[in-house]
Structures are given as C-alpha cells and as structure tokens.
Simulated assay, not measured.
Amino acid sequence: MSVYVTVSALDAGHLTLPERLFVTDADPERNTTVPSLSFLIQHPSPPPGRPSATQTNIVFDLGIKRDLTGYTPAQQAHIAQRQPIITSPDCADSLRRGGLDPAHDIDLTLLSHIHWDHIGTPSDFPASTFLVGSGTLSMLHHGAGPLYPAELFNPSELPPSRTIELPPSLTSIPHTPSHTPTPLDTKAKLPPFRSTWEWTPLPGSTTLNAIDIFADASLYLIDSPGHLPGHINLVARTAEKKYVYLGGDCCHDARIWTGDKGIALYSDGKGGLRSVHVDTEAARGTLEGMRAWVEGREREGWEVEMVLAHDAGWREGNGGRFWPGCL
C-alpha cells in the first residue's frame, strides 16, 4: 500500500536579491524581494519522541531570523545588502498560526543548508532533532574555504547533541568540511528502522542520490551538491502519481530552472569569476540531474511540482497552500 505525506508551505521571511548576481542577461538595476520559504511535511507515523502522536511533523528550512541582531557582525554586514528584509511572520509564527507549537510538535528539522536566510532560529525548536548535510557542524565553526570564511557562520546555531549529519556527498566539491559522526543517543531519536544513513540512487535517476527517510518511498532526501557543502533537497510523494520537489537553493530564480536564464557569474574580487554557488559546475550538474528525473517521471504519467526556496511568483500564486492549507 502506498504511503503519502502532506506538504504545507510556511512563510519564513523575505529578502531582496539583486538580479545581476543570480541570473544571466540580467537588468543590472533590478532588485526583487523574494520569500525564503519553509515547509511543513507530515508523515502518517508516530514519532519516537511522541508515541501518542499519529504523525511525524518535519520542517524543511527555517528561513530568516525574526531578530536580525541574532546574526554575527559579518552576517549583518551581508544582510545590509539584502534590504528590504521582512522578518514577520517567521517560521515559528507560521506554525503557530496553523495550530502547531514549534517547541513541542516538530520532530525533525531538516536544513537544506546553513546560509543565514535558511537557518532561522533553531532555538525555537528545543524538542526537535536536526538533520543536516555532511560537514555542517564543522562549517559552523571553521567555514568552508575563502568564499565562506568562518565569520559568515554562527558556531552556536545548532545543538550538537540533537544534530545528525548525513553521509558525505558522493560528489566531491572544493573546501568540503569534515564530517561529524552522530552521537549514539541522538541516533536513538531517529525512526526505528533508520539507525544508519546511506546514499543510494533515487529511483528513476542515473545521477541523483537519495535517502528514503521512512523506507516507504514517501519522502526522499536528495544529495544536491554545488550551492554549499551539505546542500540537500527533498522529494515528497503527496498522491498516487504526484511528487513535490523542494529544491532549496539549487537555483535562485525559476527562469534558471526552466532554462530561460543561466547561473550568473561575477567578480570574486581576486581577479576571477564566481557565482552564488561554491561549485558552479556541480550546481549545474545537480540541475541537469533534477531536470532529467522530472522529465522521466512526467513521461511515466507523474506530476512533479518544483518549488524553489526563493520563488516569488510561486509565493504570489499559492497563498491557499500555506499551513494549515497544503500543496
């Protein structure tokens, strides 16, 4: 019998992006205020930490902190270039508005990556186990190479005793931080059938690697290298022939996903070029693998809805699908 999850969008702040840093052939003067979306995923199984509950509540990404003073000075200097910023409602407020208490009702919190506009306020989730990409805990303390020095991260963001790192990506990218093994008592908080993690091919893909979280094909973690070390996506099965693909920062503009624009390159300040991705070629490879998988599913009669973290057009057209509504 097939198992499905429900996915609900969550408002988690907005920021403003200069188009020239993100897409090719950009208007050099255009700045666009976009969401930093979070998502609530509900799986029909009792979580280990709340055996009386009938479903496991998962949040994917936490968006922007409601209190910008919670960022480090270097982060705040960067944030000053992304104004205007909207911080209300944040992820926790959006959950409360739909009747969930972030302090007690969220079992797993998954972060696509730990950039400032995705890490939100983890302290709002004191009962949650955090699931992050490999190298995340090291990156919080030591950074990830010259483009992402340590001062761009806050080492105290995540509780090590409640944080699980996924296995290292099967794609090598520069300046990948070291993997931190998971404490045994933290592993005990995972679903009972998931004591270990291992990347295996996503069914239907020859390039994407995945972890079937509940071992029932309802929710896959996707290894999505390129943007930042440890970057992950989610694929959720929401109906008999329907997937929702939560793409995080695989790209920052829907026109890149559709192929109408490319990933912008700009000066790295050292005589070279860079993009918003730590490894541009790996990011392009991830996108190509995603497109191939989606096209293959659609040829087989599936519907696949792609939702990017910063898609302003999707946000404007889907207001009724935010929690307590669903996709």
Rank of each mutant, 00 (worst) to 15 (best):
G120M: 07
R20M: 12
Q83D: 05
M1P: 14
S134G: 07
H142P: 12
P324A: 07
H104C: 15
K189R: 15
L21Y: 10
G319A: 14
F193L: 14
A283I: 00
H115N: 13
E305T: 12
L140C: 02
Q83T: 14
G271Q: 01
A210V: 06
D268L: 00
R20I: 11
P155E: 00
Y148P: 14
P48A: 06
G230T: 03
F193A: 15
A309H: 15
S195M: 09
Q42D: 10
A9Y: 15
I211H: 04
G319R: 15
F130H: 07
Q42A: 15
A188P: 09
H141Q: 15
P122K: 01
H252A: 09
G272F: 03
S123A: 14
T200Y: 08
W314K: 02
K270D: 09
P47D: 05
R321I: 06
T238M: 10
L170M: 10
P203M: 02
I119F: 00
F214M: 02
R237L: 01
I256D: 04
C251G: 06
G313P: 12
L208S: 03
G135W: 08
G143I: 05
A12I: 05
H231M: 04
S112A: 08
F193C: 14
T121A: 11
L152W: 04
A80L: 04
V244P: 09
S156E: 09
D105S: 09
T72A: 02
I232L: 05
Q55G: 14
R315T: 11
V59I: 07
V235E: 07
T121E: 14
P35H: 06
L147P: 11
S195I: 00
D25T: 11
H142I: 01
L327D: 00
G301R: 00
V235N: 08
H231V: 01
H118V: 11
G271N: 02
A12K: 07
P84S: 01
T87S: 07
G259V: 05
R20V: 12
P102W: 01
D11H: 15
L287F: 04
S224T: 10
A217G: 13
V278G: 13
E305M: 10
V132R: 03
L62F: 03
L17Q: 06
E300H: 05
H141E: 13
